[in-house]
């Protein structure tokens, strides 16, 4: 019966993710509509001849209705053909493929650090409400949320890379040939990125545990005479895991965005520097490619979380 429920939930979540992907890809496609003036001129370059502009118009199908354009664009994207960069003429798919692992490495490390620091801090604060620990954690969280990650990155560089020489100042090692070197390079960026993440996680964990502690079922568990440790480790943890899953999903989204700025500080050539260069240079295909990749990743992560959610919370049904 449980297997059946799970199968139904997975199917349902996949069905849910479908429309989100359609709308998301349409949004990425429709971004081009924001370009001021004639898109064909923008794509051809300002000095292009009239004939060249018309050629581009036909080539990109800009003369066709927008939904038809979207359809063929999506079809190309689905096949991995993301067109070529207007600046470097490199296929967008190739540069994304090269840069994505670097970004995911930094984000992954930052996720681990945020959760590993944020969850224990939040739990500790909630277990001693209104005590000094609670105050310190809350203050740390407020500070962390207001802290510009890229500025923290600079300070980390000046201390740990320039003065102490513990870590490399910038750049990234080749992941395929030197995986440990890559991790080594990713540590400072991940820390800079994780500060605000850990703060947010600590805050959410704290309020979730406080809410659980004041719930009526916690009172029942006390009235049943369960040992304190069992109440916390069995009931508290399983109940809070539901919240933590949601937090993890939001955290991933947040860190994936934050890494864009952090990559600039550490001169890492990941997705962030790619999209920033593209935005500065009006390289529209690259902008679209990066955004598409990122939204697909986020939707996929959310899908996994949705399914895990159902494992932890029996109340979630397909309705």
């Amino acid at each position: 019966m449980r297997a059946k429920r799970m199968a139904r939930l997975i199917g349902y979540s996949l069905l849910q993710a479908g429309p989100v992907l359609v709308v998301a890809t349409f949004m990425v496609f429709a971004l081009m509509q924001l370009v001021p003036g004639d898109v064909a001129i923008a794509l051809a370059g300002e000095n292009a001849t009239r004939a060249r502009v018309e050629e581009i118009r036909i080539l990109y199908g800009l003369d066709r209705p927008i939904l038809a354009q979207y359809g063929s664009w999506l079809w190309k994207m689905a096949q991995g053909d993301m067109s070529v960069s207007m600046l470097s003429a490199e296929p967008v798919f190739d540069s994304i493929q090269r840069r994505l692992p670097v970004t995911l490495l930094v984000v992954g490390l930052a996720m681990l650090a945020s959760l590993a620091v944020g969850i224990p801090l939040g739990l500790t604060a909630a277990m001693h409400p209104r005590r000094l620990v609670d105050f310190v954690v809350t203050a740390f969280a407020s500070l962390g949320i207001a802290l510009p990650g890229f500025w923290l990155g600079m300070i980390l560089v000046s201390i740990f890379a320039m003065s102490l020489n513990w870590f490399p100042v910038s750049g990234m090692a080749k992941m395929a040939t030197d995986p440990w070197g890559a991790v080594w390079h990713a540590i400072l960026p991940a820390v800079a990125l994780a500060a605000s993440g850990a703060a947010e996680v600590a805050r959410q964990t704290r309020s979730a545990l406080l809410e659980i502690q004041s719930s009526q079922y916690m009172r029942t568990l006390l009235a049943k005479g369960l040992p304190q440790s069992q109440i916390f480790w069995k009931h508290g943890l399983k109940n809070i895991s539901v919240t933590l899953l949601t937090v993890t999903g939001l955290l991933f989204n947040r860190l994936l965005g934050g890494t864009v700025v952090i990559e600039a500080v550490f001169a890492i050539s990941g997705m962030g520097s790619l999209v920033v260069t593209a935005a500065t240079g009006k390289d529209y295909p690259v902008i679209q490619g990066v955004m598409l990749t990122m939204v697909v990743i986020v939707v996929a992560v959310n899908l996994v979380i949705e399914i895990l959610y159902a494992v932890f919370d029996p109340r979630i049904t397909t309705r």
Partner: peptide
């Protein structure tokens, strides 16, 4: 759907277009 985009990336994308 808009909330599934990482905020700053979407902002960069829109800026790039505008």
């Amino acid at each position: 759907t808009m909330l599934s985009f990482p905020a700053i990336v979407l902002a960069i994308g829109v800026t790039g277009m505008l």
